[in-house]
């Protein structure tokens, strides 16, 4: 420690050594960064770059030697990908997932926040109950909901039966193309709503009560107060929720793995396509089940491109006027 102390003293004493000091500052900073930076480069940056290399190659289906067996195929994987109906379908399903989860997630979180933003008895109890599913993992949530949605014995099916709706009895909610995706999203919305609720709640509680009082004096209805005061002032949270929803759609995998494995199949122009076949699941399937590493990499690159486009679009449309 004394060594470093004198080092600092030297640097302070001799101004003419500023270049050396600069270099030394860099060195110290990078020493602090090193443990993180090395792992970051090896396990995050390198894979993302290597992915592009891999996308230009093909691993023979019978080869488990990932390195020796690579054959250069140029853009063949990408060309195949762009003509792969199953891939474009997966993009559409990912989009569908996002279109469902973003508004549902925002509505659920905002509703819970507005409900909790009242003088209530036992607020903490409600808040804990709403937040609980957030700490649990998607796999278990998926397994539990699979049972709830299941045909014949599932409680939801039995509930619908008791009110005279038997449409779901035979196949369950996850077994029918029309209800599979909304059901997956519903489970996920309930799981995440507590998180959004907390964010909205603190944003709402930061709004000055005088704004509401003034609006009330001017004769604004509760609905007007909500749309003209609350909504605009929680817009940053809404923006954040849109981003989170987009990321969760692009990341969607565990819930699909646990609940539907990409199915049930829909007949689209003579081809069987999965009603929950999102891109995240397709990448996993091509990689893990079919061992098409090059093809999976090409797909993940297109997924990455989509992520970038979506985040740019988000920023343009939502980010511009709240900063």
């Amino acid at each position: 420690m004394s060594e470093r102390g004198t080092g600092g003293g030297e640097a302070r004493a001799g101004r003419s050594w500023s270049l050396t000091k600069h270099a030394r500052d860099n060195l110290t900073a990078y020493t602090f960064l090193a443990p993180f930076l090395i792992i970051f480069l090896v396990f995050l940056v390198y894979p993302v770059v290597y992915s592009l290399y891999l996308a230009m190659h093909q691993v023979p289906a019978d080869s488990f030697d990932v390195f020796g067996g690579l054959q250069f195929v140029g853009f063949k994987n990408f060309i195949k990908l762009f003509t792969d109906v199953k891939f474009w379908w997966s993009v559409a399903m990912t989009l569908y997932y996002a279109v469902l989860i973003i508004p549902a997630g925002i509505a659920a979180s905002l509703t819970l926040a507005l409900l909790l933003n009242n003088r209530l008895k036992a607020v903490a109890v409600y808040r804990s109950a709403f937040f609980l599913p957030y700490v649990l993992d998607m796999l278990v949530v998926g397994i539990v909901w699979t049972l709830i949605y299941s045909p014949h014995v599932g409680i939801l099916v039995q509930f619908f039966e008791s009110i005279g709706i038997t449409a779901f009895t035979e196949k369950g909610f996850l077994g029918m193309p029309g209800s599979a995706m909304p059901s997956v999203v519903f489970a996920n919305v309930l799981k995440g709503a507590g998180f959004g609720m907390i964010l909205y709640l603190s944003a709402i509680q930061n709004i000055s009560p005088s704004l509401y009082e003034a609006a009330e004096i001017d004769g604004a209805t509760p609905w007007q107060r909500f749309t003209r005061i609350t909504l605009p002032l929680v817009k940053p949270i809404t923006f954040f929720m849109v981003i989170i929803g987009t990321i969760s759609a692009l990341n969607a995998f565990v819930e699909v793995y646990a609940m539907t494995s990409g199915g049930p199949n829909v007949d689209v122009g003579g081809r069987a396509l999965g009603a929950t076949w999102v891109t995240g699941y397709y990448v996993f399937d091509a990689f893990y089940n079919q061992w098409r590493l090059g093809y999976a990499s090409a797909m993940s690159y297109v997924l990455l491109a989509l992520t970038v486009i979506v985040s740019l679009v988000n920023r343009k449309f939502l980010g511009s006027d709240n900063t």
């Binding site: 894979p47 993302v48 992915s51 990341n251 995240g280 993940s300 997924l303 992520t307």
Partner: peptide, 23 residues
Amino acid sequence: VFLSMMMVPQPVYIVPSYIVLVK
């Protein structure tokens, strides 16, 4: 760069990460 890497979905780097770990 770090912040933008946070946005990258996991399916994007799972294949090459697997290969890195095999190596």
